[in-house]
């Protein structure tokens, strides 16, 4: 087995990288692919919370890089899906602990037993983010429909084209995809957000999916359940669509129109 390394990155913080990494990894696992999701945000560990495994962390990514623990001691198996594993990071160390050789060695080892290795990058363009993107085969650029996020994404795409291992060794370039998160059709209609077309035009990379802004995402985060396990949520279904498109399926974009609120739903609030 030769697994593929996918990095979720954005440059800007707070756009939904970790949520998307958890959802994407969950979506791949639900489709039967053996998937591990790694937290590269050393010192600001969050993925374990989003995945709901924070109370089972014993060893972490840094321990394995330093040779203090074995891979199978640090990997946490998801309770909902047998194909899904979580690889948490250290909360006490900082990004300098991500030594490139060590990270490369660990990823090579993971490639032997997983189909997909999903890397949740930290924000910024410093060592942590650069290390997360360095080994990527594919990159998913998580962007919100607003100018600062789009500009930071543009910067990250440029870095992927120049600073990745594939760029350094003149291999086939990293496949770059756009995931537009926190999209609110209502606010786009009012002119408060960039449209999908605006973002696509500025970044000129293929659009993998549009995730609608949804309260269910916050609820999923707080309960430690990746949103793809919520079959009812539009955001969860949008992530499933994005995963399908990533795997080469053709799917129509959904959830692009403002939701029609019926009289009853307006009365009783939204589910």
């Amino acid at each position: 087995m030769a697994g593929k390394v996918i990095v979720l990155t954005s440059g800007k913080g707070g756009v939904g990288k970790t949520t998307s990494a958890a959802a994407f990894a969950g979506g791949l696992a639900l489709r039967g692919h053996r998937t591990v999701v790694i937290d590269f945000d050393v010192g600001l560990r969050n993925l374990d919370l989003i995945m709901g495994c924070e109370r089972r962390v014993v060893f972490d990514f840094i321990n394995v890089i330093n040779g203090d623990a074995k891979l199978n001691q640090a990997l946490i198996k998801d309770k909902r899906n047998d194909n899904l594993f979580i690889f948490p990071t250290s909360q006490t160390r900082d990004k300098d602990a991500l030594k490139r050789d060590g990270v490369g060695r660990v990823l090579e080892e993971l490639k032997d037993s997983f189909d997909y290795i999903v890397c949740d990058s930290p924000a910024g363009i410093e060592h942590g983010a650069l290390t997360a993107m360095y080994f990527a085969d594919s990159a998913i650029i998580v962007t919100n429909p607003e100018v600062s996020s789009v500009r930071d994404s543009d910067r990250i795409i440029g870095l992927l084209a120049s600073k990745s291992r594939r760029a350094e060794f003149n291999l086939e370039p990293v496949a770059v995809h756009l995931l537009l998160a926190r999209y609110s059709p209502e606010r786009v209609r009012k002119g408060e957000m960039l449209t999908i077309e605006d973002v696509k035009e500025i970044l000129s990379i293929p659009l993998l999916g549009v995730i609608p802004e949804s309260e269910s995402v916050l609820r999923a985060s707080n309960t430690g359940t990746p949103i793809v396990f919520d079959e009812e949520s539009p955001a969860g279904r949008a992530y499933h669509d994005a995963v399908a498109r990533f795997l080469g399926e053709q799917r129509e974009m959904r959830f692009l129109q403002p939701e029609r609120r019926s009289f009853f739903r307006a009365l009783f609030g939204r589910a």
Binding site: R151, D152, I157, S204
Partner: peptide, 8 residues
């Protein structure tokens, strides 16, 4: 021929 990205 490629887009010139932010920061380049």
């Amino acid at each position: 021929t490629q887009p010139v990205r932010s920061g380049t």
